[in-house]
Every structure is written in structure tokens, then in C-alpha cells.
Amino acid sequence: MTELDLIDRKIVAALMQDATLPIAQIAEKAGLSQTPCWKRIQRLEASGVLTQRVALADPAKLGFGLTVFVGIEAPDHSAEWREAFADAVGAIPEIMEVYRMAGEMDYLLRVAVSDMAAFDRLYKRLTDAVAIKNVTSHFAMERMKFTTAYPVDTVSR
């Protein structure tokens, strides 16, 4: 784990809230001048702390009104199956996130689709691509909280 000082944490927190902020505003939030702030941002990117700068969009306004959390139980745990599964989920852009889990399910997927018919097509595409022992789908009725910003401590320790 990369050890971040208070200034680094303030920079990261500012960028997670709004990556479009000008360097001058980020520097002000971090208590730095612009050049040292820019150098820190470059170092945070080079070290992998900052991985991307992206725009967030409203899924419903883009036609992705249905969010589904899909639990997958693998038929086996071989390297060959894991590779085939990774290839299959990687080829389906509506699968937004994939986590290998501990517990009752082996994998948890977050899927964004337009409607139930689109989910059915995705389900068939996935199960045709790779053998799966069990699939359990949970349909989100309402997104009550969503953030991509981690709760970085920006207070002096």
C-alpha cells in the first residue's frame, strides 16, 4: 500500500469529487502552489493511486434503467474455467463490475441493461459462453446511494 500524507489525501479527495477542477483549485484545497500540486498528481498517477479520470453519467438517461446484481456459482475452480469466465464477462460491456467472492457465491456481477428483455439476452449470452453451476439475480428497485469517491481522511492525524 502506498503511504499518502495529508496533502496527497486532500488532492485525491478533491479529484474523486470532481476530476475537472483546475489545478489552481486543487492546489488551494491541498494548501499548495500549482506546480508542486501538479507534480504530486503526476506522482499519484505514476504510482497507481490515481488510476483514471472519468465522467460519471446517469444510467437511466443513457437507457440503462435496470441494474442487476448477479451471483455466479462456478462449476469448478480450475484455471481454465476462471480464464474462460474472465473472457466471457470481459466481452459483455453491460457487465460493469465483477468481483470474486468468498462465501456462498463465487462471483458477483453488477449489470446495467435497459430492461428485462435485455437482461435475458445478456443471461443467455453469458451462459452460452461459459458453463455456470448456478446463477442468482437480484434486481435493484432504487439506487439510494452511489459514489465512486472513497472516504479518504483529509484531517491531520
Rank of each mutant, 00 (worst) to 15 (best):
M1V: 04
M1N: 09
T2I: 15
T2N: 06
E3F: 04
D5P: 01
D5K: 06
L6T: 06
L6N: 09
I7H: 03
D8Q: 08
K10D: 03
K10Q: 13
I11V: 13
I11E: 06
L15Q: 04
A19Y: 00
T20E: 14
T20L: 14
P22D: 10
I23N: 11
A27Q: 05
G31R: 05
L32Q: 12
L32N: 03
L32D: 01
S33D: 10
T35F: 00
C37S: 15
W38F: 12
K39D: 01
I41P: 00
Q42N: 12
A46D: 07
A46K: 12
S47R: 09
S47M: 08
G48N: 08
V49C: 09
L50Q: 05
L50D: 03
T51E: 13
R53M: 10
R53W: 02
V54I: 15
A55L: 15
D58Y: 02
D58C: 10
P59H: 07
P59Y: 05
P59W: 05
A60T: 02
V68H: 08
V70P: 00
V70G: 06
G71W: 01
A74T: 05
A74N: 07
D76H: 12
D76I: 09
D76G: 12
S78G: 15
E80A: 15
W81N: 10
W81M: 11
R82F: 03
F85N: 04
F85P: 01
D87R: 15
V89R: 04
V89Y: 09
A91K: 08
I92G: 07
P93Q: 09
I95R: 09
I95N: 09
M96K: 11
E97C: 04
R100W: 04
M101I: 01
G103D: 04
M105H: 03
D106P: 02
Y107E: 06
L109Q: 02
R110V: 11
R110S: 09
V111S: 09
A112N: 08
A112P: 00
S114I: 01
M116H: 06
R121K: 13
L126Q: 08
T127G: 10
A131L: 10
T136R: 14
T136A: 14
S137V: 06
H138Q: 13
F139E: 08
F139G: 10
A140N: 05
A140S: 15
A140L: 11
M141H: 06
T147Q: 10
T147G: 13
A149E: 12
Y150W: 07
P151Y: 05
P151N: 11
D153Y: 00
D153R: 12
T154M: 10
S156T: 04
R157Y: 02
